[in-house]
Structure formats: structure tokens, C-alpha cells
Simulated assay, not measured.
Amino acid sequence: MKKLLLASLVSAALLGTTAAQADDYVIDTEGAHAFIQFKISHLGYSWLLGRFNDFEGTFSYDEANPEAAKVSVVIDVASIDSNHAERDKHLRSQDFLNVSEFPRAQFESTSYVANGDGTGVLVGDFTLHGTTKEVAINVSEIGAGPDPWGGYRRGFEGAITFAPADFGINYDLGPAAETVEIFLSIEGIRQ
């Protein structure tokens, strides 16, 4: 009986030390170590590039169980910045983002499928312009480790291409501009 009890305690101790828990991270927007950028064709002749300056978010990640990853991001769409004030004013208008009615965009993950090589597909609900759709973002882990200030950081990048019309943004910019690409570079600080 004592041997069985001792074996049970040792097994429980070993399982307790090998069971990993997800680490929670806050996306480092304060230190400007995270970016949400976009790219859309301008009449088929060049690319219009820009970014969203104000956003916040969190993620959870467990190296031993990446499929349990969770991500939540909220974007202030009025913070759109294409490096041209008049164009940004137009992008904020009812023709495009309609920020007076839809001031935020949001992404909430629902699943993550790891490929086993530091890449994977993050699936979730993306809300833009008052419309929510399921999207899949191809992601890659950039790295993780201690920072010079005594913290621990983890970074990912990802990209998604979608049609603004799918979210009710129907301003005609020509056939070359029917899709927009969003690029994310996210660095989180472990909490």
C-alpha cells in the first residue's frame, strides 16, 4: 500500500512539473514594438501603404500546446495613417471606414493550427465596418526570450488578404484594388 501511495505521489509530482501552462502577453504598442500595416493597389499602378497607429491586444501561448493559443486585438480605425492627411480624412469617411459609426475593428481568435515548424494558421472572428467574418491568418513565430529590462518577450508576424466589399466597404477603386493585405508584426511582453 505504501509503495502504491508513493508511486502515485511521484507520478503526480512528475505530471505536475511537465504540465505547462500558457503564458499571457500584452502586445507592446506602448514601446512601438508592434505594427498593423496595410497594402492596397492604387489603380493598378503602384501600392498604397499605411498603418493603424492605435491598437491594443493580448495573447496567450504555450510552447507545449500551441493549439491552445488565444489572441484578442482591438484597433482604433480612426488612427489610420497613409502619410497623407487628406486621403486619411477620406478613408475615415462614410465612403470607406465610416469611423463615426464604426470606431473599432476587432479580432478574437477561435482556433490555432500549428504546422510544427513555428508557423501556423490562426482562425478567428474579425469585425470591421460593423460586419463580422471568420478569417484565417497565416502566422510565423519570430522568436522569444528575455529582454534587456528583465522581462520576457515573444513575437509573431502574420498576413491576411481580404476584400473590403466583404465587410460592406464598397467604394470602387477599380479591379486592381478589390483586395487589401494586412500585415501584422506583434511583440508581446509576458505578464
Rank of each mutant, 00 (worst) to 15 (best):
K2D: 13
K2M: 15
K3R: 13
L4D: 12
L4F: 10
L5Q: 12
L9C: 09
A12C: 14
L15K: 06
G16M: 08
G16V: 12
G16Q: 08
A19Y: 14
A22F: 07
A22C: 12
D24Y: 05
V26W: 07
I27M: 11
D28M: 01
E30Y: 08
A34V: 02
I36R: 01
Q37Y: 10
F38T: 01
H42N: 12
G44I: 02
L49G: 03
R51W: 06
D54M: 06
F55L: 06
E56Y: 07
E56D: 14
T58I: 07
E63W: 07
N65M: 04
P66G: 07
P66E: 03
P66Q: 04
E67H: 13
K70P: 10
V71N: 00
S72K: 11
S72I: 08
S72T: 14
V73H: 01
V74D: 04
S79L: 13
D81H: 05
D81G: 03
N83T: 08
H84L: 11
E86D: 15
D88P: 02
K89F: 10
K89N: 11
H90K: 09
S93A: 04
Q94K: 13
D95H: 08
D95K: 10
S100E: 15
E101A: 11
R104Y: 13
R104K: 15
F107H: 02
E108M: 06
Y112M: 01
Y112T: 01
G116M: 04
G118R: 05
G118A: 09
T119R: 07
G120D: 06
V121S: 02
V123S: 12
V123H: 05
T127V: 03
L128R: 01
H129W: 09
H129V: 11
T131L: 10
T132H: 14
K133A: 10
E134G: 05
E134D: 11
I137Y: 02
S140H: 08
S140W: 03
E141M: 11
G143R: 02
P148C: 11
P148R: 08
G150S: 11
G151C: 05
G151M: 04
R154K: 15
G155A: 09
G158K: 00
I160D: 04
T161D: 12
F162G: 00
P164H: 03
D166G: 06
D166T: 08
G168F: 07
I169C: 01
Y171V: 14
Y171C: 10
D172C: 12
L173C: 06
P175C: 08
P175Y: 04
A176D: 15
A177H: 02
V180Y: 03
V180A: 02
V180D: 00
E181Y: 00
S185C: 07
E187Y: 04
